[in-house]
Amino acid sequence: MIDILLFGIFAGLLLHGIHRKVIARVQGRPGPPVWQEILHTLKFSFKETWIPVTASQALFVAVVLVALGIWTAALFVLLLEGSLLLLFGMYMLHKIVEHGLGLSSGSPYGKFGAIRSVISAASEIPLFATIGAVYLVTGSLMISDILAWQQVHGPLAIAMPPAALAMYLVILSKVHYSPFAIIEAKEIVSGNRTEHFGVWRAGLDVAFALKTFVLLFAFVLIFVGALPFAAVLAVMLVLLLSLSFVCALCPMLSPYDTVTVQSLATGLIAVYIVAFGVIG
């Protein structure tokens, strides 16, 4: 299990690198080499590190540990084929990490990032539309049951395209450079990550790499079904490439526009689920 954890971290960092490369190429720039994010993480971990004097010291360090902990746990939920609800619980708790990162330092930029993270809570709501839809169709939230269902009936993405779309939107909200990434927008420096430097930043990079890996992996398991591991990786890569295209071509939305778009999407999916539940 520890082997897949380490693999997930490096694969996630590599995916981040590929993401940056694709965005750069779409925008006509050469872009960094694909392993840049791995080097980045190592570089940060070698840097001088302390805790800012204005920070809430315990919280400042604890959020980094919590970020690493929840995404390690989320990966294990996937590997042990546990409850989908637990996986999405982890995803919600990531929101608290984002919020805590920004609040803990005392920096105004971090604070803006943290407040934007509360505003962008609308990005979690499509997730519950997804859960509801999956439960309605498969009758279970255990990933093992969902995989078994797909063995019989084919991929869920075909049975329930709007649910897949909702989860795609959720993943899109969380990748770097996304149109919804208002919490780390450049007009507020790096948003909630501004004050986490050195080793803290390296820890966060590891956690976020794991997050990307877990979310893409979860999408494949939930909506495509059980595949050989190499095929899972291939589908994840294709999924990431599509996300990179969206990120490269869409400008970042303003905070309230992100809420509007995400709420509208959720509303449409909720209508679909209710209609599906009534008819089906």
Partner: peptide, 23 residues
């Protein structure tokens, strides 16, 4: 989500470990 706008504003208060509990 749709009812949280005032909550986003109250998290501007100082005292990070306590304000975090709201969320």
């Amino acid at each position: 989500a749709p009812f949280y706008v005032a909550k986003a504003e109250i998290t501007r208060a100082p005292g990070a470990p306590y304000v975090l509990m709201i969320h």
